[in-house]
């Protein structure tokens, strides 16, 4: 009598093979989370990992409307598309409940608008749900949204979603939330700086003679006053960063025509202090499961 040869079903064989491949990949892929460069070495230097990490939430605090913090954070969010691993191009999701997002502002940055998905939820619950779903999706490189109000529980929900999906979450928020409990991994204050490449408002040359016309039948003159290449300049202060020193600041500028960031040559400052200035954010730091794990191991 020959011995009975029971072959395992194909699905089991495939599952076993997958497990083995995963085990090999995990060994090879340390460190697990790679940093996304902001495109400016000076700004990268603020972060312990040399850039914003995938699966993190970054808060960009804007002290005034019109500060340009949204433009800066969106430009950096787009860099996550190029750094994404899957063969299929991932998407950048913009959640725009206020319905003010204006896509033509991004033209000229060498970005493909086909990668952009704009969600326009009509209420707060749908907005949070859309953010949660988008952050949880591995095919999304980055999620960008203006969130003036966010309670701690919802914040934690978004943070877990970003961690699960490995998606970068860029939350644009008013500077008034500074000091409130936060589940973000990085919190940055963006203060606009005055640049002098425009025409001084009270100068004698302020007249309307140098019109450039953008009409349906004609194109503007390339270097008329309206169409000069302009720069945005900001002082960026790292208010808090998980497992890193805070209160470091740097001044950077962006060429708004190309979206390129560079360290500001004149006002570059990098000062450091190793203690948290806001006790409330420490609460969420301590409550974070990763930190708890690390402390319990120690």
């Amino acid at each position: 009598m020959s011995p009975r040869t029971d072959k395992p079903p194909n699905s089991q064989v495939l599952a076993a093979l997958r497990q083995q491949i995963h085990a090999c990949q995990q060994l090879d892929s340390l460190p697990a989370v790679e940093a996304i460069s902001t495109g400016c070495a000076g700004l990268d230097g603020l972060f312990p990992a040399g850039g914003i990490q995938r699966g993190q939430l970054a808060e960009w605090l804007s002290p005034y409307s019109g500060s340009g913090a949204g433009l800066l954070s969106l430009a950096i969010a787009w860099r996550a598309v190029d750094c994404h691993r899957p063969a299929h191009r991932p998407a950048v999701v913009v959640v725009d409940r206020e319905k003010w997002f204006y896509p033509p502002a991004l033209v000229g940055w060498e970005i493909d608008l086909r990668d952009l998905i704009v969600l326009r939820p009509t209420n707060k619950a749908d907005e949070l749900w859309a953010l949660d779903q988008s952050l949880r999706c591995p095919a999304v490189a980055a999620v960008w949204s203006w969130l003036p109000r966010l309670d701690s529980r919802d914040f934690r929900r978004l943070q877990l979603a970003a961690e699960q999906g490995g998606t970068l979450g860029m939350l644009l928020r008013p500077a008034t939330v500074r000091g409130q409990p936060s589940w973000s991994d990085v919190q940055l204050l963006v203060e606009p700086q005055e640049v002098l490449d425009g025409t001084p408002a009270r100068s004698e040359s302020s007249d309307a003679r140098n019109h450039s016309i953008t009409a349906t039948a004609s194109h503007p003159a390339s270097q008329s006053p309206a169409h000069q290449h302009t720069t945005h300049r900001w002082k960026i202060t790292l208010l808090r960063c998980r497992a890193g020193a805070s209160e470091k600041s740097v001044t950077i500028q962006m060429n708004t025509t190309t979206g390129q960031l560079e360290l500001c040559p004149t006002n570059s400052t990098l000062t450091g202090s190793n203690h948290e200035t806001h006790s409330l954010s420490l609460v969420s730091q301590l409550a974070h499961p990763k930190i708890n794990r690390r402390q319990s191991r120690a």
């Binding site: 949204g70 204006y102 502002a105 708004t256």
Partner: peptide, 8 residues
């Protein structure tokens, strides 16, 4: 007109 239009 890249950079001439506002994001909002």
């Amino acid at each position: 007109c890249a950079g001439w239009r506002p994001l909002g």
